[in-house]
């Protein structure tokens, strides 16, 4: 599976305004849903965070949940130059957030595969803080596509 094919520039925000976990989640969900639908999804994502932070360390967080309010996998990406307090497992600030919302059931369990792919990509993205280089959402998606090619070639 290719993450770059699931990303759209309108859902990549390279200058997040929020500095705290909950407000970052709200900012990112706002790119996918609005109004009451957004409130329901935010509430589920926060409940998920309470079971263990999705800040996986090295400046990356991947908040995720399933929700009845989407009918396909939805992804939003946010970057913060100043860092976000995310209660990550290494207790360090988070700079890059991938938010993933999946429908209740999805063919081939794309949800788990996507989460796994993001973790795999993150290991490359944190090298020399590569993820801070792109200046536009389109460049960010191109960077993801380039790293995915590298990863796939190694297989």
């Amino acid at each position: 599976m290719n993450l770059s094919s699931l990303l759209v520039p309108e859902r990549v925000n390279l200058s997040l305004r929020s500095k705290k976990k909950e407000s970052v989640i709200k900012e990112l969900v706002g790119m996918i849903k609005s109004g009451k639908d957004a409130d329901v999804i935010i509430s589920t994502l926060i409940k998920r965070e309470q079971l263990g932070s999705t800040g996986i360390g090295k400046g990356i967080a991947i908040p995720h949940c399933r929700s009845l309010l989407v009918n396909r996998l939805e992804i939003a990406v946010g970057r913060s130059a100043g860092g976000i307090e995310f209660d990550a497992i290494d207790k360090k600030p988070v700079y890059l957030v991938f938010l993933v919302i999946a429908p209740p059931q999805d063919p081939g369990n794309q949800y788990l595969l996507t989460l796994g792919r993001i973790v795999q990509l993150s290991k490359e993205l944190v090298k020399k803080k590569l993820f801070m280089e792109p200046q536009s959402p389109k460049d960010f998606i191109k960077l993801i596509a380039r790293i995915e090619k590298l990863i796939d070639r190694r297989k």
Binding site: T44, T54, I56, I62, C65, R66, L112, L115
Partner: peptide, 30 residues
């Protein structure tokens, strides 16, 4: 809808076997 989303979360992470698939990716889940 909120209740159903919560039930989905409980179902997905409630059993140790299901939780394991997320933990193996790298998430720490209680």
């Amino acid at each position: 809808i909120r209740l159903h989303d919560l039930d989905l979360l409980l179902k997905e992470l409630g059993s140790p076997e299901r939780r394991k698939s997320f933990q193996s990716i790298g998430f720490k889940i209680k």
